[in-house]
């Protein structure tokens, strides 16, 4: 690979632009395809370009045709928006990052957010209404609320329900969750909407400590993400 092609690829990944590096594995000739112009030394037929764009859309890498053309797609990392810079967030942020998620933490309480243990996460010091507008959850985003304070969690969950987020989870006991669902229902959300919220959050592994709860949350988010990818394939 030419180093300028590598820099171009890294710039597109950093800008969250889905793209593909296409390689003729017999010659090593390569082309970079995605948003913007096609660059590189590998000439591609119109047919091949259509096939490559299909792979980019499906976020799949592989060989195309009967040939030696290999397509490596790069799509933006999935994201996890965490509402509440609480103790569990300190475990959840690094675990989510290890699993390949970009972590974003929303909390209006500056002292919580700057506790220094959320390294590498994007910190948004806003009330959840504004914070969720800024974070803009999409179909590759998980939203997890951790405050179990209705005035922080509820607006975040409402924003998540109005978004295509692939996962929505809310920390809190069964009782807390029932009350939360009743409030959101009173706000006009349907039963089908509310069924999107996983509560109590996380896989049931009898987690007790903040780190254990973070494991159960990350596991459930991955389960949901992969199940969705499998059903699309």
């Amino acid at each position: 690979m030419k180093s300028n092609l590598l820099s171009d690829l890294q710039a597109r990944i950093a800008a969250h632009h889905p793209c593909a590096l296409v390689t003729d594995t017999t010659t090593g000739a390569q082309a970079l395809i995605g948003t913007g112009e096609v660059v590189g030394t590998l000439a591609l037929t119109a047919e091949a370009q259509i096939e490559i764009n299909r792979l980019i859309a499906a976020n799949k890498s592989g060989v195309i045709g009967e040939t030696s053309i290999f397509v490596r797609t790069y799509s933006p990392s999935p994201r996890m928006i965490i509402v509440g810079a609480v103790h569990i967030a300190q475990s959840l942020v690094p675990m989510a990052q290890l699993a390949g998620f970009e972590a974003i933490v929303i909390d209006p309480r500056a002292a919580f957010l700057t506790s220094g243990k959320l390294a590498g996460a994007t910190a948004i010091e806003e009330w959840p209404d504004d914070g969720m507008k800024e974070a803009r959850p999409d179909a590759r985003t998980a939203v997890v609320t951790l405050t179990h304070d209705p005035k922080l969690d509820d607006p975040a969950l409402a924003a998540a329900l109005r978004s295509p987020a692939f996962y929505i989870g809310a920390l809190g006991s069964r009782k807390t969750h029932e009350k939360r669902l009743a409030r959101l229902k009173a706000d006009g959300f349907s039963d089908a909407d509310l069924a999107r919220i996983r509560g109590p959050v996380g896989l049931n592994i009898n987690a007790i400590s903040p780190a254990e709860i973070a494991v159960s949350i990350v596991a459930q988010v991955i389960e949901t993400l992969r199940a969705e990818a499998k059903s699309k394939a």
């Binding site: 390689t23 592989g62 060989v63």
Partner: peptide
Amino acid sequence: ALATVVQTWGSSPRPAG
């Protein structure tokens, strides 16, 4: 150098890419 899995058959631990 960069090594990349381009194809797999049967059970293999790491996917293409």
